[in-house]
Design a binder for these strands. Sequence first.
DNA 1: CTTTACGTTGACGTCAACGTAAAGCACCCC
DNA 2: GGGGTGCTTTACGTTGACGTCAACGTAAAG
Lengths: 131, 131
Amino acid sequence: MGMGTGTWRIADLACEFGVTARTIRFYEDKGLLAPRREGGQRVYEARDRVRLALVLRGRRLGFSLDEIAAIVDMYDAEPGEAGQLEYLLGQIDIRRADLEQRRDDLDQTLAELDAVATRCRDHLARLRAGS
Amino acid sequence: MGMGTGTWRIADLACEFGVTARTIRFYEDKGLLAPRREGGQRVYEARDRVRLALVLRGRRLGFSLDEIAAIVDMYDAEPGEAGQLEYLLGQIDIRRADLEQRRDDLDQTLAELDAVATRCRDHLARLRAGS
DNA sequence: CTTTACGTTGACGTCAACGTAAAGCACCCC
DNA sequence: GGGGTGCTTTACGTTGACGTCAACGTAAAG
């Protein structure tokens, strides 16, 4: 860390998470992050780091920033009234369906790649054995 | 199908897979598809459909078209010589690692969404029970 | 043979997710 | 006070993945 205990500057986070400062500022612009300011400079705390990690995980999964915002916002939604809670449950179901579709796609792709690899190794073995 | 048995026109595929004809032509431009031509018009056969399905699955997974091209090309790579086979096996390993990282991310996200949902339902129950 | 629907190839527009460059403030060091 | 480092904002550039539009060919129906 580059500051008082438990706080980080933008370059610290950028380095740690392997992104540029520009990217982090861009995410803030899009409402994905909201760090404290200390004399104009951004100061990140633990919860900001967690949010950034969530955003980057969403990115690895191929979600758009809008989708990521929707997901991350579910995490720290305040309880609220019954209607809100039911709405949130509905949104979660939608995301769940999406994620499970992705897992199916993913498992299929993995299985097929394995099949190709097996075919590959078979062929190699045959080659080495002198056809 | 809109033509002789086992062949389709571009609009047929577009409708069936829920994309526009423009998208299909774009994929061809990028080398992801290579349909037969019949008097200037594209004619798709079963293998073209399979390839399109693979491309769209890759898209759902959030891969770029370049990555998709790399993956799909592994599927119908000809055996070739030993060097080629070893290179292909290496590429497959890289893809595998990527896909497995994604699955980890995915499972974590699913688990966390479930946790949120559970919290949500608990709160709802407490609300209905009169605080 | 004309109409109508669907196809083709460019070419340019658009949107997301940043990259990059410019210009300026704050602080530290010598 | 000159130089360096690190931060800030503003603004324009870039790339990928298409959408959209114009201008034109073609195939099937009446």
